[in-house]
Write a protein that binds this DNA or RNA. Structure first.
Lengths: 160, 160, 160, 160
DNA sequence: TTTT
DNA sequence: TTTT
């Protein structure tokens, strides 16, 4: 079976880095891909932007958190995964995410060096802590937004 | 920008074929991909099945409706698209779908011929009708399930 | 940088399994992909079959050698690599191969079990030997065919 | 059957644009992809650069000829095709090329605008001519380099 | 809900 | 050389 996603797009905001109880990093990124086409009927140009929730784990999460910034162009390869969660009223809701397996920064002449300019303060990279933040578990699911997944057991796993 | 999905999986049920007001076919399929891995900690084998909503349009929708059946193994190439809809209480909800752009039947010794056996009655292929069924527009969004999209304007579009 | 190949095709012959001095397996496979299209001018159907040299290493080579057979339908993911060799007259020649990184058997109702029928004798799988065959190094490059690569140093390597 | 290649790399030289008898453009590009890995044995970093011959046709060939330059970073999607030709001594030789089906310029903040700087003279883009150059047919295959293909009949073809 |  |  194959479940493969390949995206080239730009970040809509700085990455958000959190840590699992194990100490492994989890980085969330919102990635835009824009499709442009010419309408067959009217002949006019149209475009549609799709936003993808991309999740990086462990070593890749640290690299993403360190080098990616709002506006960065990036190639992401991964798989589709839909996560179930409950909203305030207890209803089941679903959030579809891209679990990243490969990542390539694009277009940087300077070899992938991050820009530590004006976005550094609110989105900067922090080294993995031996005392992992408990943030993922604490956060309350707000009405319409999926909570960060706990991923307690996420692991670099070995396919067989 | 690139937004590409490639899946190889099996259908969980017969395809559902509907028609747009334009007469173009829309086929929905539920596709399972199973990932198997060995847990790093415990060493035990684990697996996870992911279900994908795949949507075919026009000519591809007709081929999918005619040749695919519950259990069919298929390769699908397409793009990720998230659709917004309102549930009964008027809340915004989202459904992520794979818009198919290519399709290949796999593994059929018999050359891709569909099985018109016991599943033919509820899932069989119907030729495009000049009087398109209005089904997509009529259906009520049930509490937890996204309604079929209307796609009134879906078109074989030309990228530029 | 990205160098990715994805093939779905059929084997033209049983796999050829050899062993590196290290004992690791190397399996070569000839894979056909057929493209069909309708000629714009004449409107007639045309087709072209492309043959790909696919090389598997180590664990994947053993699985390929054991389960694939002439006619098997398979999904291969890998990268393109061009190898330089010298023909009898000492001229440089090039052979482009697909180095496989993932493999999936397709369409086997019977769960991927290999057929050990009439092709087992000349193409059967042998378990890795502690005394690796020296075959790769011995073979003489014939005039027009690239010799098996020696790959003395091929290794499961870690991207960084 | 699937025969898909996806590359992200940099051009080693300006594109070469030629024209078919039909007037359609054919653009050849040499694209480098670099793989980096850590050797399992020695632990040292290694890298290997692979050069791909990429061929664009018709509209894509014109865009490639206009906007790509030596050093440009580009995403190319296409298929593998091996072409047979005869060297001076009449021996069969093979050249493997990537026939491009999609192309995306990467990393240009300025929206894909080509650099018409110092490389414009030897590699610049020319609009399709009603009097197509006969160049492809004239060129002599030199001993070790494949001649440009004639592609007399290449066409935007319709898969079925 | 499929399949291996 | 495969397969549909």
């Amino acid at each position: 079976m194959l479940n493969k996603v390949m995206l080239i797009g730009n970040l809509g905001a700085d990455p958000e880095v959190r840590y699992m109880p194990s100490g492994g990093a989890v980085t969330n990124v919102s990635l835009a891909t824009t499709r442009r086409w010419k309408d067959r009927q009217s002949g006019e140009r149209r475009e549609h932007t799709e936003w993808h929730r991309v999740v990086f784990f462990n070593r890749l999460a640290e690299v993403a958190g360190e080098y990616l910034r709002k506006g960065s162009q990036v190639y992401v390869e991964g798989r589709i995964q839909t996560r179930k969660w409950q909203d305030q009223s207890g209803q089941d809701r679903y959030s579809t995410e891209i679990i990243a397996e490969e990542m390539q920064m694009l277009g940087s002449r300077s070899g992938g060096t991050a820009n530590f300019g004006d976005s550094a303060q609110q989105g900067g990279y922090s080294a993995p802590q031996s005392q992992p933040s408990a943030a993922p578990q604490q956060q309350q699911p707000s009405g319409n937004t999926p909570p960060p997944a706990s991923y307690d057991d996420f692991d670099d796993d070995i396919p067989f």
